[in-house]
Design a protein around this nucleic acid. Structure first.
Length: 490
RNA sequence: GGGCCGGUAGCUCAGUGGUAGAGCACCUGACUUUUAAUCAGAGGGUCGAGGGUUCGAUCCCCUCCCGGCUCACCA
């Protein structure tokens, strides 16, 4: 292990501690209180003068004078000033603090609570010991660690130094627990389904591949939980959900990480309208839990989760923003002519449905700032959704958008096994034609549908993106503890 | 993948075709109420990597690596 100068300095101190017969990494701590508890009980304990033991990391500067010294320690619950006097501690302990204990070391302090002359609540120590000697030095005192790459690669350091970062991940946990509470209270059963799957499905995406050595079998990391969860609805559970990672072998950017956290839930005897109400209720509760308000600031916008979300059929949204009525123009050539006639600049696609989607992505989606449902997607784009009874080329489906990001996708689940089989066959044709995101045939899923699945509403929500919105973070990497980073050569 | 921007001390950043700079941190010394402690002094560099041009490259050119923004892709 090669050490730089600053690390070597600290190693010398570590060796000195050992030479004094001390263990710089003892097995346990004799802490009696967390800092928050000590501060809560400060006045009564200070008056009584009873001793207590606190432990934590030294943060900020140590202020060491000839016979007195100050520092702050932090333990995850709060921070408190440490106050040391040579007269009180004796030369040995005082000089150990001065010479062998550094900022960022994790230490244990026994003493009494007392205010300084300036009035700051402090622990006036009579003994001090090291719980964990640190080798790496802290970043700059004021600018801290700001390099984005280093913050993500060394998240542990980011969390130590930038306390607001810890608040974001607490908010994330709160958002997820709120989601879980809403689902549990409505009778959904939390389940776990395979991440390693012989056939991937449930979304349009490219998978990661892996291999099981003993079975000699190719496996995929799941891109969605959908098809397994619906098998459980067939199996008789009235409602199920799963919160877990999905994996998609696609580009990485501000709103995409190769692995991301998805919540999917399915409710028997419900449909996509029920799912819309569920989304509205869930996001309202999550916003309240995280921000204590239904009005959430995001990058200069104020998002309103307090009211029902607009429900706009996709055809209407496209018509409004481009003047093109896809309900009337239902053939690729005519659609592309209309696009040209309207002087719209979109990439040409190979099918009518994909051209519609392109038009939507380009001219509608970026405008969907406030929470909005876009409904009734073309059946070709929705191989797992039930057709609209009055409009069979469109489906009972919606996607949920906030600040131009898709945060959710839901539909009335297709339960006609013959229609489903035909949709899979159509997807296979797309795949053969070069659509790398097309679905695979899942014969076992068809077999499950042939045992009968009740009318079912299904929903998927992208948790990372929702957390971005609720915590006002512009990049998905800021809400993922360890976002994917390209490997460094070093 | 394309375009733009960046990578210099542990951290945050300046900088120049001619011996590499600052602040903080660290080290030594002084200091009995600090909280950006103060004062005095010292040390610390593969200037992302490789190649080229040049008498001489951290600087100019080329290639590559890593990141940020953006476009494309990913409905």
């Amino acid at each position: 292990m090669e050490l730089n100068d600053l690390q070597a300095q600290r190693k010398i101190k570590l060796d000195r501690l050992r030479e004094s017969g001390l263990n710089p990494y003892p097995a346990s701590s004799a802490r009696t209180h967390c800092v928050a508890a000590a501060l809560e009980q400060f006045e009564t304990r200070a008056e009584a003068g009873t001793s207590l033991t606190l432990a934590g990391r030294i943060i900020g500067a140590r202020r060491v004078m000839g016979k007195i010294a100050f520092a702050h320690i932090e333990d995850g619950s709060g921070s408190i000033q440490l106050w040391i006097s040579r007269a009180e501690m004796g030369d040995v302990l005082f000089e150990r603090f001065r010479d062998d204990i550094d900022t960022f070391d994790i230490i244990e302090v026994t003493g009494v609570l007392r205010r300084t002359q300036k009035g700051e609540p402090s622990i006036f120590a009579h003994t001090i010991s090291v719980l964990a000697k640190t080798i790496n030095p802290p970043p700059e005192k004021w600018a801290g660690l700001s390099d984005v790459e280093e913050r993500h690669r060394q998240r542990y350091l980011d969390l130590i130094v930038n306390s607001e970062r810890r608040a974001i991940f607490r908010a994330r946990a709160l958002a997820v627990s709120t989601m879980r509470r809403v689902l549990d209270s409505r009778g959904f059963l939390e389940v776990e389904t395979p991440i390693l799957q012989p056939i991937y499905g449930g979304a349009a995406a490219r998978p990661f591949s892996t291999y099981h050595n003993q079975l000699g079998q190719s496996l995929y990391l799941r891109i969605a939980t959908e098809l397994y969860l619906k098998r459980l609805i067939v199996g008789g559970f009235p409602g199920v959900y799963e919160i877990g990672k999905d994996f998609r072998n696609e580009g990485v950017d501000r709103s995409h990480n190769p692995e991301f956290t998805m919540m999917e839930c399915y409710q028997a005897f419900a449909d996509y309208r029920d799912m819309m109400r569920l989304v509205e209720d869930m996001l309202r509760e999550m916003a309240m839990a995280v921000t204590s308000s239904t009005l959430v600031p995001f990058q200069g916008h104020e998002l309103d989760f307090g009211c029902d979300w607009p429900r706009i059929p996709m055809a209407e949204a496209i018509s409004t923003h481009t003047g093109i009525d896809i309900a009337q123009i239902n053939e690729l050539g005519a659609l592309q002519s209309a696009i040209t006639a309207a002087n719209l600049k979109v990439e040409r696609k190979l099918t009518w449905a994909k051209q519609v989607d392109e038009l939507f992505s380009e001219y509608v989606q970026p405008l969907l700032i406030q929470p909005t449902f876009i409904t009734d997607y073309p059946v070709e784009l929705s191989p797992l959704a039930k057709r609209k009874p009055d409009q069979p080329s469109f489906t009972e489906r919606f996607e949920a958008f906030i600040v131009g990001m898709e945060i959710g996708n839901a539909f009335s689940e297709l339960n006609d096994p013959f229609d489903q089989a035909q949709r899979f066959l159509d997807q296979l044709k797309d795949f053969a034609a070069g659509d790398t995101d097309a679905h695979q045939m899942d014969a076992d899923y068809i077999n499950a549908l042939m045992y009968g699945m009740p009318p079912t509403g299904g929903l998927g929500l992208g948790i990372d993106r929702i957390v971005m919105v609720l915590t006002n973070q512009p990049s998905i990497r800021e809400v993922i503890l360890f976002p994917h980073m390209r490997q460094r050569e070093d």
